[in-house]
């Protein structure tokens, strides 16, 4: 049962197509796991539809319809191909970034048993997978921007709440937190930020340039 969902602002941004890549990846991954947010997103898309309907029209060139009909030719609309939902722990959009499921991740140790794998890193956002053994804490850190964390396996707890598979934690600059993986399976999360993380301890801070986070 998913308890922590995407925000309205994230769904609006995704529907409008103006989120940075890493955020798009997290939204697409969560929506793949959550019918509630799938329905909220499709409702949000209806805003785009209403704008399309009501924001004016610009006449097409004379032969436009004929040109499209010629392109279509004698082809009937496609039959939807049977599609398979992901059977692993990573939904399809995430598998496309990793090149497979959790066993295909190129993990790198970042100390204390914690591992990470950077999936995409750009000027506006970065996405990485985190692997946190049960009972282990991710170094206490704050954020310059927004950090979103989506749980894919296991669970973690921090000062705010408990987060299990499918849950999203939305942390803004004000939140300084120490996520600790719960007992049981190792916790695997997708974490995205729109600014570099800053760690509070001295050692993690010195390591930051090497960790590229």
């Amino acid at each position: 049962m998913i308890r922590h969902h995407l925000s309205d602002a994230l769904l609006t941004g995704y529907s409008a197509g103006i989120l940075p890549e890493a955020f798009n990846l997290l939204v697409a991954t969560h929506v793949s796991m959550c019918d509630e947010c799938r329905a909220r997103l499709q409702a949000q898309d209806a805003v785009g539809g209403a704008l399309l309907e009501d924001s004016g029209a610009v006449a097409m060139a004379g032969g436009a319809l004929a040109a499209v009909l010629e392109r279509i030719g004698a082809d009937a609309p496609e039959r939807p191909a049977p599609r398979r939902a992901s059977t692993g722990i990573f939904p399809t959009p995430l598998q496309e970034y990793v090149g497979g499921d959790s066993d295909a991740v190129a993990w790198r140790s970042v100390g204390g048993g914690v591992r990470q794998a950077i999936l995409t890193q750009g000027p506006d956002s970065s996405a990485r997978l985190l692997y946190i053994p049960p009972g282990t804490a991710v170094p206490d850190h704050g954020h310059h921007g927004t950090e979103l964390t989506l749980v894919l396996q296991g669970a973690f707890r921090d000062e705010t709440d408990h987060f299990a598979r499918g849950d999203v934690e939305i942390a803004d600059e004000a939140l300084e937190h120490t996520p600790v993986a719960e007992p049981g399976a190792p916790c695997i999360c997708l974490a995205v930020t729109d600014a570099p993380l800053r760690f509070n301890g001295l050692i993690p801070r010195l390591l930051q340039p090497f960790l590229k986070i």
Binding site: E21, A28, S32, R38, L41, R83, S86, P93, G122
Partner: peptide, 12 residues
């Protein structure tokens, strides 16, 4: 614009 992965399709 930024790459925008789509959610997994419903399997039907």
């Amino acid at each position: 614009r930024d790459r925008r992965p789509e959610p997994e399709d419903l399997p039907w």
